[in-house]
Computed example of a mutant assay.
Amino acid sequence: MSHPRLCWATIQLCFRPIASALLSLSLLSVFGCAAVPLEQANSLTSYESLTSHNGRLTKANYKVSSGDLGAIKTIYIAPTMVSGAAVHSIKNPSDRALVANVISRALCVGVSDHFEVVRSKEDADLIVHATITQIVPTNATMAGLSTATSLGASVFSSVPVPRLPMGLGGLSVEAEATTREGKQVGAMVWAKGANFMTTSARVSQIGDAYSLGASFGGDFSKMLVTGKSPFKALPKIPSGQRIKSGLGGKPKYPACDLFGRSPGLKDFAASQVGMPPSWTDKQRPTGGQ
Rank of each mutant, 00 (worst) to 15 (best):
I243W: 06
R163D: 00
K266N: 10
R163G: 01
T138D: 02
L164I: 15
T199Q: 02
V173Q: 03
G218F: 10
A143R: 07
S146A: 13
T178M: 08
G260H: 07
P165M: 04
V185E: 03
G240M: 11
K228M: 07
A255S: 13
V189L: 07
G249P: 14
R202G: 05
P162H: 09
Y210K: 02
G248D: 07
F259G: 03
G240D: 15
A177E: 03
A177M: 06
G167W: 09
S211W: 01
M166N: 09
K232H: 11
K250C: 06
E174L: 00
P160A: 12
S262C: 15
G152N: 13
S245K: 02
P160I: 12
I206M: 00
Y210D: 04
A187C: 12
P277D: 02
K244Q: 13
R242M: 11
G186R: 02
V185Q: 04
G193M: 02
V203N: 03
A175C: 12
S245F: 08
S215L: 10
G182L: 10
L224S: 04
G264W: 09
E174K: 04
F231I: 04
G144V: 01
L171F: 02
G186A: 14
S204D: 06
V173T: 04
S239F: 08
A270F: 11
G218I: 06
V189C: 02
A140W: 15
K222H: 14
P276W: 01
M275E: 13
V173R: 03
E176L: 05
G264R: 01
P251S: 08
A175G: 07
M142G: 05
S211G: 10
L234Q: 14
A191W: 01
A148P: 00
G182Y: 09
A269K: 14
M275I: 07
S157L: 10
T147R: 13
S157G: 05
S211H: 06
Q241S: 15
G249D: 12
D219F: 13
G217L: 04
E174N: 05
A148I: 09
T138P: 07
T178D: 03
V225M: 00
A269G: 13
A175Y: 02
A153R: 11
I243N: 09
P254A: 07
G217W: 02
M197A: 01
P235A: 02
G182T: 05
A233Y: 05
G246S: 11
I206H: 00
N139S: 14
L258S: 11
A175R: 12
L164V: 13
G207C: 10
A143P: 09
S221I: 03
R180M: 12
P263Q: 07
A255F: 11
G170A: 05
S172I: 11
S245V: 08
